[in-house]
Design a protein around this nucleic acid. Structure first.
Lengths: 207, 207
DNA sequence: AATAATTCTTGAACGCCGTTCATTTTCGCC
DNA sequence: GGCGAAAATGAACGGCGTTCAAGAATTATT
């Protein structure tokens, strides 16, 4: 049986991801230490590097988990098919804000984490981000039937990034960021402005 | 003369800030090392901690410099007083994108840098961020004469953060970010949508 | 069942990091 | 010129991610 090896290996990997997720939740991504993670996972320090390439890769697995939860939260927030496009956008933005607030440190880890100089995230992890854009495309298509597929994708990314920026600066507590009490209503106003603007924008617009 | 002491001290501080700025420009904020900075500044390792509280504080000084340059770039991009509000907004956003692209690593250092657990940035540095919001308030007031001062400030922060988010994800090269070729036109479309949306939004809106 | 081969586990050790400290040098003042 | 205070110096410290040689465990072979 080669099963026992594989099973133990998978077990350890899961325990390590669990521990890392817990550590990030408790201390933030910058407080994630290899020694604390391995201790919590019940293995030796070196075992981490047998289960994963390095600490960065472990973080990627935590982040992929978070992205799946976030994706579920977003798709779960979608109203029925009879809903107005702006209604859909508002529901998505609201769910995004809620998720970010309820999972602050894990959500921040998604965007604060960067690979070491020159290295790039593996494809399987990049693809996990796709859901963030995918859900936006349908309502955006309703708002802007004039846009071709490629432009639609760009516009979806822009829309996501705009909302994301507002949430990010608020949750990071930056001086220029919004206070938390104002976050939800301001995001709503932003989405409202973007969808109304999108409604009226003429096809020959810039971009 | 106590001047010589003060002069030497100020000289060293400037050399250290220069060196740190150069190191960040070359290797990014995550590549900033105390030993490399002090070597480039021509002083011993320990001298850094006589001139500044720690490396974080040195970074704050670099960031304050960057913010001043950014503020100058923004105010310098303001069109004449006869310009339409949307024109002003577009000019500001365009200047923001240009500055971020032309000073990628310094600009990223502005927002990637975080103080160690629990510590907060000093007030003099926080105040340096104010210019980012200040310039937006005038054109926004023209677009939304119905908003009171407090709401205006919130809306200005939201507007800034939205544009900032789009630029950030693009420059970080994130999977969900825009490709650089699309950045300027998408930001323009975003600003257009926001200002048009702002025009039409009814006073009793959410937020 | 016994043995060989492969893989995993372990924690000490390595190299790099920011920071501190005892020591030496320089400076401001009498 | 000499004295107290401030600054300069780089070795040393503690913490970090990562590696490695040695031993334990699992699988494959006979």
């Amino acid at each position: 049986m080669e099963n026992k090896r594989e099973k133990k290996r998978a077990d350890l990997r899961n325990r390590l991801i669990d521990a890392a997720e817990d550590q990030i939740t408790q201390h933030g991504i910058e407080g994630l230490k290899a020694r604390a993670v391995t201790q919590q996972a019940g293995c030796a320090l070196g075992a981490l590097y047998n289960a994963f390439e390095d600490l960065d890769m472990l973080v990627m697995h935590v982040n992929s988990r978070t992205l799946q939860k976030l994706g579920a939260a977003l798709t779960g927030a979608l109203p029925g098919t009879d809903a107005q496009p702006e209604e859909v956008m508002q529901a998505l933005a609201s769910a995004y804000v809620d998720f970010a607030c309820a999972n602050q440190r894990l959500w921040i880890a998604l965007f604060d984490h960067r690979m070491a100089q020159g290295r790039e995230a593996p494809d399987w992890h990049k693809q996990d981000h796709a859901v963030l854009i995918k859900v936006i495309i349908a309502p955006l298509k309703d708002l802007r039937p004039d846009l071709d597929e490629a432009t639609l994708i760009l516009r979806a990314r822009t829309t996501f990034a705009a909302v994301h920026g507002v949430v990010l600066l608020a949750l990071q507590g930056r001086f220029v960021g919004l206070p938390m009490e104002a976050l939800k209503s301001e995001v709503s106003a932003l989405v409202s402005a973007m969808t109304r603007g999108a409604h009226l924008a003429i096809p020959g617009e810039t971009g």
